[in-house]
Write a protein that binds this DNA or RNA. Structure first.
Length: 275
DNA sequence: TTCCAGGGATATA
DNA sequence: TATATCCATGGA
């Protein structure tokens, strides 16, 4: 991936491997803002501002190294796309979602965010997360940071209902308490299976939410999160053997292997935005 | 009014 | 182990 690192900015030259709209609209993050001439993306207590030029994208940030990792800039997505194009039904999805990258996001933020995602829609998830940040997170020059574990445990169930979490309020309360004494770092070293099993002991984290966390926070790409959209995609790809989402995911992982997570994002984005 | 959204917990057989 | 039902909320 062709980019250069400056003092307070990153310049990305390979636009076929970097499309901000596709990166944020493919459902892996909920904290971003689109403005007329620039885009802003937030992570933990950090942010960056992206400006698209004729033949490059400039990422302005005070933490260059953090966002080089965040945007997964040291990975060659051309190779990934080439490999995935060999599969039937992938070419259109890859062409459509060209420039998607799987972000390396904060595990804690992903857990809280995807607990909220269950049986919910993206605009609402964004709104609820925004409210949680506004009420619990530190105020910064650009807005509110995502709350720390300490800030989260101070909130009660009533608060999470107040911000619109609905029946998930209890999940957030219980999981926030568990995570205040939980080593999220060591999951990096675990196998996908073992990490998934541990994540699923958290309240509000089932198979699908766990797979999203594994993919978007730990970059474990041998997962295929099955939601209401990908269940439809399963039959559209010509599969019909399995009815249980977990087994459907297994079939798809047998098909795509270590590229499953990437395949899932292209397919999810393509079919969701094209109905 | 009903359906749906990046599903999970729980009870039941 | 597999299936059915309930769960808040707001936009379509």
């Amino acid at each position: 991936m062709n980019y250069s690192k400056e003092n307070n900015s990153i310049v990305v030259f390979d636009l076929a491997q970097f499309d901000f709209t596709h990166i944020v609209e493919c459902g892996q993050t909920f904290r971003y803002r689109n403005e007329a001439d620039c885009h802003t993306i937030f992570s933990k207590n950090k942010f960056c501002v992206l400006q698209k030029k004729k033949d490059c994208v400039i990422i302005n940030t005070s933490d260059v190294d953090y966002f080089i990792n965040y945007f997964d800039l040291n990975r060659d997505y051309e190779k990934i796309k080439e490999s995935l194009c060999k599969y039937d039904g992938m070419e259109n999805a890859i062409f459509y979602g060209n420039g998607i990258r799987i972000l390396n996001q904060d595990p804690y933020e992903m857990i809280i965010s995807f607990i909220l995602s269950s049986n919910n829609n993206i605009p609402r998830i964004k709104t609820i997360i925004e409210r949680i940040c506004e009420h619990l997170g530190d105020k910064t020059e650009w807005g509110y940071a995502f709350p720390t574990t300490e800030q989260m445990v101070r909130a009660d169930e009533q608060f999470f209902r107040f911000v619109g979490a609905g029946y998930r309020a209890n999940y957030l309360k219980e999981t926030a308490e568990r995570l205040s004494d939980f080593d999220l770092e060591h999951l990096k070293e675990c196998s996908t299976e073992k990490a998934r099993k541990e994540l699923m002991t958290l309240k509000g984290v089932g198979r699908k939410v766990a797979d999203c966390i594994l993919l978007f926070a730990y970059h474990k790409t041998d997962v295929f999160p099955m939601d209401t959209w990908t269940k439809r995609i399963y039959t559209m790809l010509g599969f019909c053997e399995e009815r249980v989402p977990e087994k459907q995911a297994q079939r798809l992982i047998e098909k795509f292997g270590a590229l499953s997570g990437y395949a899932q994002q292209y397919l999810y984005y393509y079919y969701r935005t094209n109905k």
